[in-house]
Write a protein that binds this DNA or RNA. Structure first.
Lengths: 340, 340
DNA sequence: GTGAAAGCGCTAACAG
DNA sequence: CTGTTAGCGCTTTCAC
């Protein structure tokens, strides 16, 4: 059986309270007593029970993290960032992957409540959806009564802190670059337009086009869903139609891959036969020195920021909610260029 | 304040024990009483405290997972697999990322002990090292007295269950393919030879070469460390030396990228000017339809298997230790071919 | 079927 | 400086 504080107390010939004092470094303990106790603890490799401690203190040092897919570079990096800060503060991280399913999200939230996590970082499966789903989610978040930071995706009229990416502006800027390069027929492969991140990026494109008095042509607007497959299919379609746009904006890393794959198959050269900028970086393309221009965000930092926000919120629970918008950088590699 | 079982009991006009019975679905409870209690629970969105429950039951439903880097496709997939099974069994997952630092690994283990996790899945920072480090690790694992599954990397004379990749055989088979293709000067960019996974893959190469009476030439053996940078540097070196091997084996996904990057820069065509097979798949290369042949493993499945092993171990703590070796598949895409 | 009481391992007043 | 005591919120006998 595992040792308890009582065992240690007996072995050290003191009371539990004294052991507790040295464990928590609280109150005064005679130097010799302390050393004796520390020795006993070490000799017996005693680990105080976080369970008992939490129950007694009526609080935990546990942070809950709920994300939709760990096997996605982006969320892997997010997790790394969160974990880093959690670790710096000697806290414990409880992790849940929802596989992008709302049912799992609900169960994850229940679990976090039962575990009495001190705070929660959540990327909801849905993003500003109008549905029943969002109502349920918000109710659950309210019920849980703990500090929550929404990450990457949010809810309407949120009452919680959030850390988001500058979706609108990044798409606007990328489009702007294509316009200034002198392209006329500028197209877009959108993301999932049911998600706010998808809509915002699309709006960024549209507004840039309007602001610069460019003609928006429906036939160059391809509605995707953030997946490689859909983007690939759409790209193949427009390639086969022989009516290619001059330049194209892709709305996330997977969309970019779908486009690139299609272009490769048809031997269409980026930066020569067609131009493009993508949102999101693609580590591997980058390593290989592929000339694809992109809007990058720092996911690890996003994780760190979210966790730091949570820590601040613990200090000041009643302060007004804060929303962080993570900046972006655009890396131009040549694919945005107009053919000579 | 949060509601407790006592609050629910009062509201339902019964005793705590009865509420506990319906919560745990244990013992007999009159139907009407049960329904009444369930209603009260629902109306008040009461979540029983896992902390109190664990303390009382003297056991938890929590699994600890310690991995070296979540922002690595491979470990992201591992985590996904583990999480999937944890979820199926309504357990809770506590996660730690060690950033490949042993100091963090030690602290993570302490934390898991304090959290009283029921079982642990661990990918140690080091792999079969001879050092003090490994002694310390093994001592800590023994002290923790809980079921442990070692994942991807192990320790010498392990007493714990393990799930590993078939490192030796996969390298052997890949080399064999290159040999049978008719290549003569077959080289290798090794991984980190301080890690057993690095050594095993290297041995697989050497033994295949010996078995087929191929000449092993030192100048074609490039010692890498599993990183893109090192592999890139080594590749550049041998390219500039003008003394290229006919074919080359790369020992992990990053090593492959380093090689490919260098080849691209020098305009050396895979499957034509030089041949290659790599260990590990590279999702992006695959998506793009790049003709790089590789040995693939299913990381998500590895995670699932590890977690299932843990569950079995709970059932039968004294059974002899089990070691799973995950199978591999080789996908030939043309890069292994000999030039015509 | 249900309730009362003891106890899980720890912390936190309160005495002394 | 140290020990005693009373919980924390739940489960689990043991009576009734």
């Amino acid at each position: 059986m595992r040792l308890t504080i009582t065992d240690i107390a007996k072995k050290a010939k003191v009371s539990k309270s004294t052991v507790s004092r040295v464990l928590n470094n609280s109150g005064y303990v005679h130097r010799e007593t302390r050393e004796k106790i520390e020795q006993v603890i070490k000799e017996n490799t005693y680990y105080p029970s976080a369970t008992a401690r939490n129950l007694s203190k009526k609080e935990s040092n546990t942070i809950g993290v709920i994300i939709p897919e760990a096997d996605n570079e982006f969320f892997g990096e997010i997790l790394t960032g969160i974990s880093e800060v959690v670790d710096e503060h000697n806290m414990t991280l409880i992790f849940c992957d929802t596989s992008n399913r709302f049912l799992k999200e609900e169960r994850a939230l229940d679990m976090m409540n039962m575990q009495r996590v001190k705070g929660l970082i959540l990327t909801p499966v849905n993003d500003h959806s109008d549905s029943e789903t969002e109502k349920k989610l918000k109710q659950k978040l309210r019920d849980s009564k703990i500090p929550i930071v929404l990450l990457d995706r949010g809810v309407k009229n949120s009452q919680w802190d959030g850390v988001f990416f500058e979706n609108y502006q990044s798409a606007y800027s990328a489009t702007e670059i294509l316009i200034k390069e002198g392209h006329k027929k500028i197209g877009i492969i959108t993301g999932d337009l049911k998600l706010k991140i998808g809509q915002d990026r699309y709006k960024g494109y549209l507004n840039a086009m309007e602001d610069y008095k460019m003609e928006i042509m429906d036939k160059y607007i391809y509605e995707g869903n953030f997946s490689v497959e859909k983007a690939y299919e759409l790209s193949k379609q427009f390639i086969e139609s022989k009516d290619l746009p001059d330049a194209i904006l892709t709305c996330n890393n997977r969309t970019s891959l779908g486009l690139i794959k299609a272009l490769m198959e048809y031997n269409i050269i980026l930066g020569k036969d067609i131009s493009a900028i993508g949102i999101d970086n693609n580590k591997v393309l980058d390593i290989l020195g592929y000339n694809f221009s992109y809007v990058a965000r720092d996911a690890v930092e996003m994780g760190r920021v979210a966790m730091r926000r949570l820590l601040e919120r613990f200090e000041d629970p009643d302060k007004q909610r804060v929303e962080y918008i993570m900046p972006f950088k655009i890396y131009l590699k040549g694919s945005e260029k107009k053919k000579p």
